[in-house]
């Protein structure tokens, strides 16, 4: 059961701001797109499994189509060959969208400081939350998801229309 946001409560009515209601609804129904490439993907499978159960956070509905997903979970090494694909997937996602970078490889290239590996996905797409670990334990992935939930809950409804957000995307050459 989700707690109601702050508001004014009386007999037969409850008043709060729209932003808070939307935030609460979004927070508990994040549809993740698992962009699982390697080891972290296996830990993600464990996170989805019965033992750790991501469904407790309303995120059990995986969306394999980027167009219906809210959260892009990048798990595993992204090679340079894969970079354009990842970017295309990000571009196909509808706003509002969040990105969770799981594991050392996705966040920074990890131990693979080599010619073929992209040194962190933040070189091509903006990232909201980084989860460290090689691979992170399922608890850490859940922690990352909870951090994303916090962001989703508190985000202003107008943020995605703001000039700063556009400028940030432009930095990455998106749109």
């Amino acid at each position: 059961m989700v707690q109601a946001p702050e508001g004014v409560e009386g007999a037969g009515f409850f008043a709060t701001s729209l932003e808070k209601v939307v935030g609460m609804a979004r927070k508990n129904s994040i549809w993740p797109l698992p962009f699982a490439t390697s080891c972290c993907g296996i830990e993600f499978m464990a996170t989805m499994g019965a033992h750790y159960d991501l469904a407790r956070f309303g995120s059990e509905r995986l969306s394999f189509s980027p167009r219906q997903a809210d959260l892009l979970m990048v798990m595993g090494t992204i090679a340079k060959k894969m970079g354009p694909v990842l970017r295309q997937v990000y571009e196909q996602m509808a706003e509002p969208r969040w990105v969770l970078s799981v594991g050392a490889c996705a966040s920074s290239g990890g131990i693979f400081d080599t010619y073929s590996v992209l040194q962190g996905i933040d070189r091509i797409i903006p990232v909201d939350v980084y989860v460290p670990g090689c691979p992170p334990r399922p608890e850490q992935i859940i922690d990352g998801v909870m951090k994303i939930q916090r962001l989703v809950e508190t985000e202003s409804l107008r943020r995605r229309d703001s000039a700063e957000y556009k400028a940030m995307l432009n930095q990455y050459g998106i749109e």
Binding site: T37, C39, I42, G76, A79, M82, F112, T114, S116
Partner: peptide, 28 residues
């Protein structure tokens, strides 16, 4: 080749002990 990480080249730069973590990530 979408997650080619250059294990073989990487292991030419690492002492024998440090190759073990690379092998982990082969068949994880």
């Amino acid at each position: 080749g979408y997650i080619h990480r250059a294990f073989e080249k990487l292991s030419e730069r690492r002492p024998f002990n440090q190759i073990t973590p690379i092998t982990d990530r082969m068949n994880y």
